Computed example of a mutant assay.
Amino acid sequence: MVKKTLVLLFFFTTFMVASQSTFVGGWLPKVNTSTKLSEKTKWVNSIEAREIIYNEDFQFTHSLVDVSSIFSFKTDLDQSVNVGYILRFKEGETIHRTLQHFNLVQNLNGIKLGHRLGFEQFFQSQVTPQYRTRYRATFQKALSGKKVDVKEWYVKLSNEYLYQFNKQDFEIRLAPYLGYQLSEKDKLEFGFDYRWGQVFDLIQNNSLWFRTTWYISL
Rank of each mutant, 00 (worst) to 15 (best):
K3T: 12
K3I: 10
K4V: 12
L6H: 12
V7P: 03
F10H: 12
F12V: 15
T14K: 06
F15K: 09
V17R: 14
S19V: 08
F23W: 06
V24P: 02
G26L: 03
P29D: 05
P29H: 06
V31N: 03
V31C: 02
T33M: 06
T33E: 02
S34G: 01
S38A: 06
K40A: 11
S46N: 07
E48T: 12
A49E: 08
I52Q: 03
I52G: 00
Y54F: 03
N55I: 00
Q59V: 11
Q59M: 14
F60C: 05
T61L: 09
S63L: 11
D66L: 06
D66S: 01
V67Q: 14
V67K: 10
S69V: 01
F71K: 07
F71E: 04
F73L: 14
F73Y: 15
F73T: 10
K74W: 04
T75P: 04
D76Q: 11
Q79L: 10
Q79M: 13
N82V: 02
V83F: 15
V83Q: 11
G84V: 05
E91V: 04
E91R: 09
G92Y: 04
E93F: 06
I95M: 10
R97I: 09
L99Y: 00
Q100W: 08
Q100A: 13
N103Y: 11
V105D: 10
N109R: 12
K112T: 10
H115M: 09
H115V: 07
F119Q: 05
F119A: 12
E120C: 00
F122Q: 06
Q130A: 12
Y131A: 10
R132S: 11
R132M: 14
R134H: 09
Y135E: 05
T138R: 07
F139I: 13
A142N: 08
G145N: 07
K146I: 11
K146Q: 14
V148W: 06
K151F: 06
K151M: 07
Y161L: 15
L162C: 01
E171K: 10
I172S: 07
R173F: 00
A175C: 08
P176D: 04
L178K: 06
Q181V: 01
S183G: 01
S183T: 14
E184H: 08
D186K: 09
L188F: 13
F190Q: 09
F190N: 08
F192Y: 12
Y194C: 01
R195L: 04
G197Q: 05
Q198E: 14
Q198D: 15
V199A: 09
V199I: 15
Q204A: 03
S207I: 01
S207W: 00
I216F: 13
